[in-house]
Design a protein around this nucleic acid. Sequence first.
DNA 1: CCTTGCTTTAGATCCTGTCCAAGGTAGGGT
DNA 2: ACCCTACCTTGGACAGGATCTAAAGCAAGG
Lengths: 137, 137
Amino acid sequence: MSDLLERLRERGWRLTAQRRVVAEVLDGDHVHLTADEVHARAARRLPEISRATVYNTLRELVHRGEVLEVSTDGRAKRYDPNAHRPHHHLLCSRCGSMRDVRPTGDLLADLPPSQSFGFTVSEVEVTYRGVCPDCAG
Amino acid sequence: MSDLLERLRERGWRLTAQRRVVAEVLDGDHVHLTADEVHARAARRLPEISRATVYNTLRELVHRGEVLEVSTDGRAKRYDPNAHRPHHHLLCSRCGSMRDVRPTGDLLADLPPSQSFGFTVSEVEVTYRGVCPDCAG
DNA sequence: CCTTGCTTTAGATCCTGTCCAAGGTAGGGT
DNA sequence: ACCCTACCTTGGACAGGATCTAAAGCAAGG
Ligand SMILES: [Mn+2]
Ligand SMILES: [Mn+2]
Ligand SMILES: [Zn+2]
Ligand SMILES: [Zn+2]
């Protein structure tokens, strides 16, 4: 994720300890943390970091397309660093764990013009729900 | 919707004026009201009805599978009486208006076994986002 | 009718997320 | 190396959505 920070710095983003730590926390595959989880992990490395800064940083990363914001029902949104290859989500109805998935079909094409009601459709979001192997017992 | 109320009464649901009014408000096609919108409309007919009762009634209707709960990003959930024929949603990014849609493909089948990560997938929810004709100007 | 257990109600409370004013600091300019 | 200043961070207030509570109300079976 250090190339991410470098990229953003070149675009005029000030490189602060807080932003560095948030970026570190968000590194990895199948990472889908809530803002408060990001805050808790960031605070291990930088105890004074505030919730407001975590929210600010996440909002900017989302706005710049570096992080994906995934809204899950009524609960807290989750933040996903895997923003460069589009994908969808598989969500466990019991424990809430989340995996990235890549369906085969062209889901946008699955919506025929007769079903578009004059909308200019630009994006499709898919959530598959089920029970994960750990919860299956 | 009166058969709905009858059905529920037979299952031990007490028939109150409040529940009757909420059911009436939720009648129709392409109805996707927020809880507060339901409350506002219900209050026209029954001024003393409380927000808590609207929330309680909606929760129960959802729990009994008579109404669908649709969560839209950070905003208030919407309640959809069209629960008996499964469908997906087309959502305007600007004004938030919502339409029911029925994609052609088998979206569950679009998730190949190699992408299931051992989950027992039971449900798929799709949200198409775009700009509605009214907002297109 | 009565009774009883389910319902309703207002208001408190919780959770997520945003806003604010005050103080701090990255990093370009010198 | 040191300033400056525009940008950043902070804690706490705030807001909207939704749930919870305890007291009062009422549907409906007996
Ligand atoms: Mn993801
Ligand atoms: Mn619908
Ligand atoms: Zn699970
Ligand atoms: Zn619109």
